[in-house]
Design a protein around this nucleic acid. Structure first.
Length: 489
RNA sequence: GGCGGCGUAGCCAAGCGGCUAAGGCACUGGUCUGCAAAACCAUGAUUCAGCGGUUCAAAUCCGCUCGCCGCCUCCA
């Protein structure tokens, strides 16, 4: 069964087939590095991290290229504000980006080319376009002649006439046509610049991706990804440049993920309503953010809120609780006791991997895939509950094996990768740190309460329990004594 | 104005023409408990924004209406 992917170019889900058998070539637009990254950037990195991991799980070789835009107007402006060079600024935020990515556990792409290290490739590509009369130089700038590419607009579904009618584009007397876009910009005094046949300048934004993808992946490659906001003009222009130069299809599948919103508005730097990755990771475990991001399919908008993060944490905890219970099974099992798991249970547990794949094959439907995980842990929990003190060897083997499968599959989304017991203990400690009470104090209260319970002084016992609850601590009386947890706020 | 997307239980979210409309969070009931909590089990949409249409059959396809969002300028 093949993977179906929604292709922005055709606006349909299509069965994916790699150009080269068993090898996928993927290019994703990375960040412009002039500031800290926000949750939207995290979603992008995570979405493609998941896609790459899933393809690798399916035994594909994946060549994954993600660029850094390290020269552009914003970088120049920001560097000048901060009295530093564009190079220093860009590299600083590339390092910050790596710190965020490492905390999120995002796998590194195969290569991460920087725009400034591929100026020659861009100049070459621009020269080819000029030779074909698809581009023209004017006063040190070079522009792409949009009108000469008959299919211009095919990715974003726009017609040239419509765009011109509603154009909000500044009039630029260097351009033959207002829709033409810049390939090379003459530099102003003091700005970083590179030598070119058209004078000192720097590349336009769109040309970098065309040049770098061609260098590392060839004229035609399998998948090009990015955020939905890049469809127009960035990807439309890239496509126009590349296809005009090569006369070949640029990309088979265009994959665009949805935005992270906050109160249903797009999170963006220009709106100023963004939360940085590190803001979130200071409050939540990276896997909570991953669980949250994968709780909806990558193309849908995802609304960020504290409540949603709390929900995600609760859901992830439930999965970890199950794995912790499986870990706790131990090896003292018997081969004489009848197993608890029935055929139906075994069938359900064994169906997990197939169902998970079906979900993922459907345009990487991680929401559905998470559902498969929960369905399975429901069966596991049921079995564990029925287990005798000395469970049968069949049951323990079944549970341990399914625990391994769950971890393997969840790993595609980058969740459930920690030791379950340690994860839960760490979350508990974090939650405790937010209360005004220490574990020692709690244990003292529990002891006092146990004394009261032994004396059947229920009033005193309940009083202690209520006072702890007021401090956010919930008690749980179990067969092995009294445990405690921090109440969800 | 042009283009695109979305509207499914209290909230989040699958479902892409036909099996009882996944799953999570919350709620409620049960098991457990001195009573609770936690955990586990169970329960919840005769219905998928509204109205029409196509079809033997529609949440799923088509049309219209209403509402929300995004792109058309840098943006993941």
């Amino acid at each position: 069964m093949s993977v179906k992917i929604y292709n922005t170019l055709t606006r349909k889900k299509e069965a994916f087939q790699s150009l080269e058998a068993g090898h996928i070539k993927l290019y994703v637009c990375g960040i412009t590095s002039y500031d800290y990254c926000h949750i939207g950037h995290a979603r992008s990195a995570l979405a493609f991290d998941m896609i790459v991991r899933y393809f690798r799980y399916l035994d594909y070789k994946v060549t994954y290229i993600r660029n850094f835009t390290d020269i552009d107007d914003k970088i120049i402006a920001r560097a000048s504000e901060q009295n530093t060079s564009t190079e220093e600024l860009a590299n600083r935020f590339i390092n910050e980006f790596y710190m965020d990515m490492d905390r999120l556990g995002v796998d590194r792409p195969t290569m991460e080319p920087k725009a400034t290290e591929h100026i020659q490739e861009m100049i070459d590509l621009i020269s080819e376009l000029i030779d074909k009369d698809m581009a023209y130089a004017a006063n040190g700038d070079v522009y792409y002649r949009v009108g000469s590419f008959a299919e211009y607009g095919k990715l974003s579904g726009r017609k040239l006439e419509d765009m011109q009618a509603g154009a909000r584009i500044r009039v630029n007397e260097n351009k033959d046509d207002p829709m033409d876009f810049v390939l090379w910009k003459a530099s102003k005094p003091g700005e970083p610049s590179w030598k070119s046949p058209w004078g000192a300048g720097r590349p336009g934004w769109h040309i970098e991706c065309s040049a770098m993808s061609r260098k590392y992946l060839g004229d035609t490659f399998d998948i090009h990804g990015g955020g939905q906001d890049l469809i127009f003009p960035h990807h439309e222009n890239e496509l126009a440049q590349s296809e005009a130069a090569s006369n070949k299809p640029y990309v088979t599948m265009w994959v665009h993920h949805g935005f992270v919103t906050i109160r249903d508005e797009k999170m963006s730097k220009s709106l100023g309503n963004f939360l940085t990755i590190r803001d979130i990771l200071d409050h939540y475990h990276p896997e909570v953010l991953r669980f949250f991001i994968f709780s909806t399919q990558y193309r849908n908008p995802l609304d960020f809120s504290e409540a949603a993060m709390q929900d995600a944490m609760a859901g992830l905890n439930r999965l970890y609780e199950c794995l912790a219970a499986v870990n706790a099974l131990g090896d003292n099992c018997s081969d004489t006791v009848a197993p608890v798991a029935g055929n139906k249970d075994i069938r359900k547990i064994n169906a997990l991997e197939g169902k998970f794949q079906t979900a993922m094959n459907n345009d990487f439907n991680t929401a559905q895939a998470q559902g498969c995980l929960f369905e399975t842990i429901k069966v596991i929990n049921k079995i564990i509950r029925q287990l005798p003190d000395c469970p049968s060897i069949q049951d323990t083997k079944l549970l341990q094996k399914s625990g391994e499968t769950i971890k393997k599959l969840a790993g595609i989304m980058g969740i459930l990768q920690e030791d379950a017991t340690e994860y839960l203990a760490a979350r508990k400690a974090e939650m405790l740190a937010k209360t005004d009470i220490s574990e020692a104090e709690i244990l003292t209260y529990i002891e006092q309460r146990n004394q009261a319970r032994d004396d059947k002084d229920w009033a005193r016992s309940d009083e202690i329990r209520d006072s702890l609850l007021n401090k956010g601590i919930e008690l749980k009386d179990g067969p092995d004594g009294t445990g405690w947890s921090v109440k969800r706020s």
